[in-house]
Every structure is written in structure tokens, then in C-alpha cells.
């Protein structure tokens, strides 16, 4: 039998691009690029009654208050720009008003840029381990303002940690903690991140 008319053995691939386009558009539409970045926080353990705050500790507490109208009060002084909080918090944490022996070692290990922030004011914090940053909001405070202020408080600590090991706050945060355990520990020794989120007040109402 003679071979008949030879038909082309190739598969027509002209529409391949169209099929691929269709798939591409499907994936473009159905998927979202996840943004899994955020501000971390460790909540305090649950207790039946809130622990009483001692009067003598007052100077070791850095008070940040935000009311239902999103107005801020830092250490009993009204402030209008949340960015001011970072500097004030750093000065408070690094005050070293009445350091004990361990705290003195911490102080001596600080780089000059952080030492210069230490005002040794007897009315401010004794040393970083004792210093507590207390952040109290109202039930009517907006979440946006809460995050803005919390961000500034975290920034204060991260900038201190970063400066201790010669990094910026960003570099410190994005450092691989498992690989740089020693560095991470060195940045944090003697200066724990004492951010306390107080139960919000109800004075400003819950709003609408």
C-alpha cells in the first residue's frame, strides 16, 4: 500500500499561548500575596485580680495614656505628635537614676551614643530592669492610634537593642534569632522589654 498523502505530524501549538494566558489569569485573580508582617506582643498571664501598683514604684513607671479622643498624655504631659514618645521612652529606660551593681555593668557596656541619653535623673527610672512602660488606652481609643503608639514604644526598645550591637533597629528585628543567639542575648541582657498594656479605662465611653 502506497503511503497516501502525508499529513503534517506536528501538533498545532499556536493556541498554546492562549491556554497559558488563561491559566495565568486564573492564578492572578484567585491568589493574594499574603502580608504576614506585624507587631508582636506578649500578653501578661491571666490573674483573677490585677496586682496592686506600689506607690514607691511610681518613678519606675513610664505612663502613656490615650483617651477616647485619641489624645495622648505621656508622663502627665500632653503631647501632640506620637513620634515624640520614642525619644522620651528611650531616655526613661536608659535613665539609670539609682543603678545596682548588675545595672552598673549594663551601663558600662553601653555604647557612647546610648550613654549620652542617660540623664541619671533621680525622679526617673532606677535602671532598665525595673523600668516599666505602662500603656493605657480607653475603650473608645481607635485601634489605629493604639498601634501607632505601641509601634513607637517598641521602636524605643529595638533602637536600644540595635545600638548595643552596632545595628539599626531594622537590622536587629530582621536578624535571624536562631543563627545569632549570642548577639541577640547580648543586645537584651539587663534591658528586658517591659511594655505593659493596662486594662483600658471606660471614662471616654465605648463610642459608636
Amino acid at each position: 500500500m502506497a503511503k497516501g498523502n502525508r499529513q503534517s505530524a506536528e501538533v498545532n501549538s499556536g493556541s498554546m499561548a492562549d491556554i497559558a494566558f488563561l491559566l495565568l489569569i486564573f492564578f492572578l485573580v484567585t491568589t493574594t500575596i499574603p502580608n504576614d508582617k506585624g507587631i508582636t506582643l506578649q500578653l501578661p498571664p491571666y490573674t483573677e485580680e490585677p496586682p496592686p501598683i506600689l506607690e514607691e514604684n511610681e518613678k519606675n513607671i513610664f505612663k502613656v495614656l490615650v483617651n477616647a479622643k485619641d489624645m495622648m498624655l505621656v508622663e502627665d504631659e500632653p503631647i501632640f505628635d506620637a513620634k515624640e514618645i520614642r525619644g522620651k521612652a528611650k531616655e526613661f529606660i536608659l535613665n539609670f537614676g539609682k543603678p545596682d551593681a548588675d545595672a552598673m555593668d549594663v551601663y558600662n557596656s553601653l555604647p557612647p551614643s546610648l550613654k549620652s541619653l542617660s540623664l541619671k535623673n533621680p525622679k526617673s527610672s532606677d535602671f532598665p530592669k525595673e523600668a516599666i512602660v505602662s500603656f493605657k488606652t480607653d475603650r473608645g481609643t481607635s485601634y489605629e492610634r493604639y498601634i501607632t503608639v505601641l509601634d513607637e514604644l517598641k521602636a524605643a526598645y529595638y533602637e536600644i537593642y540595635g545600638a548595643r550591637i552596632g545595628m539599626t533597629a531594622d537590622e536587629f528585628r530582621n536578624m535571624d534569632r536562631k543563627k545569632n543567639k549570642a548577639k541577640y542575648a547580648r543586645a537584651r541582657t539587663g534591658i528586658p522589654m517591659n511594655i505593659s498594656i493596662a486594662e483600658p479605662g471606660k471614662a471616654g465611653g465605648t463610642g459608636k
Partner: peptide
């Protein structure tokens, strides 16, 4: 979501 600067990644 609000804006912030001190962001960390989920480990």
C-alpha cells in the same frame, strides 16, 4: 490595616 514601622515576620 494601620501603618507601623517596627514590623516582624512570622517565624
Amino acid at each position: 490595616f494601620p501603618d507601623a514601622t517596627q514590623l516582624s515576620k512570622i517565624e
